[in-house]
Design a protein around this nucleic acid. Structure first.
Lengths: 191, 191
DNA sequence: CACCGCGATGTCAGTTTCTGTCATCGCTAG
DNA sequence: CTAGCGATGACAGAAACTGACATCGCGGTG
């Protein structure tokens, strides 16, 4: 028989989510998480850089989806259209209606704790630089690449928060389209 | 004679900035800051909520400038124009050419440390919600208010980073205008 | 089969950030 | 003169992390 139960990382993550949801980020100690997962505090920190990071694993995969979509877009498409397409595609793939309750629970944990909001914002900032890099790789020049990536993030953020709220339907793609339309109308308004 | 030297807060802030610039955020302990300022660690935490917060004092004043400009705009102006006007005005008032080197030094400290970037992003997120609230107070309806505020932040961020880089001239207002033009062109492009 | 080394985990000690609580003592109001 | 206020110190302690080394199943090698 193996020396330890397998799946340490998964156990740690599950325990963490449960405890955060139950009592809030601040009231949960790493020692407690580890103990409930049948592990040691030290082992927790071998898997996760810090207590917050548990909620943000797989960010690189997420980022990669955006980047892949941007790089795979037709070469003659404009940067705004490319970014919007990537956001719509990822939004649809990554956030099906079944996932809404899970996202909602995760988001309510984050929204309740400034420290977790900070981490989320940092990850999203990483996403914009990844998108800007991808745009640049396609030939988009510099002021526009950064700006396009920021717009993409804005669209994503606004759409995601509306989707999680659940007040307007469940269709993430439709919400994205609606936000894009709002944004274009807004920026097109006469100065 | 008074029991203690006056200006504890200012001493702490000055010492902190100097030490961060000299050796980096991580290599400086709060105990050391306090000791160099002739105070105690405990007193440091009475003035600043945490070690990072020293770099972000006066954020409420900064936020207030944006809000005031938004609320003072002519009632018939569109949300995008209002936000752009506020960004341009604050940018001009708050970031004169003389301040560039100071901003540059501060920013290089922040950019060198993820923890400080997190805090900066949180403060900027607070700025957008403040701007969105101000827009709403003017009568801008909900999807647009949030979106307008996000656009304002995007413009500010991009313009500020260009200004700090110093590659294109020193005139913050001109940079803001250029970024706004880029953004409008970007969003206006055919899908 | 015996052995050896790898890899995941444990153990322990230590640093640093941050908090609660109470003591100190100039200054100011009455 | 005295009482209390307000800024600071002193101290203890929790909790988040880190570094160094020990443990020991397992898998491969001879």
């Amino acid at each position: 028989m193996p020396r330890w139960e397998p799946g340490a990382r998964e156990r740690l993550q599950a325990t963490t989510l449960a405890l955060f949801a139950e009592r809030g980020f601040d009231a949960v100690t790493v020692a407690e998480i580890a103990s409930r997962a049948g592990l040691t505090e030290r082992t927790f920190f071998r898997y996760f850089a810090d207590k917050r990071e548990v909620l943000f694993t797989g960010q690189d995969v997420f980022e990669g989806m955006f980047v892949d979509h941007i790089l795979a877009a037709p070469p003659d498409a404009g940067p705004f259209a490319v970014v919007v397409g990537a956001v719509r595609a990822v939004a649809t793939d990554f956030f099906p209606a079944e996932r809404r309750l899970l996202s909602q629970q995760r988001q309510s944990i984050i929204d309740a704790t400034p420290g977790l909001q900070e981490r989320e914002l940092l990850k999203l900032a990483g996403l914009t630089t990844a998108m800007a890099d991808a745009l640049r790789k396609r030939g988009t020049p510099e002021p526009t690449a950064k700006l396009g990536a920021e717009c993409g993030l804005t669209i994503f953020r606004v759409a995601f928060s509306r989707w999680v709220d659940g007040t307007d339907g469940d269709d993430m793609a439709a919400i994205v389209d609606s936000v894009v339309a709002d944004l274009r109308r807004l920026a097109a308004a006469p100065q």
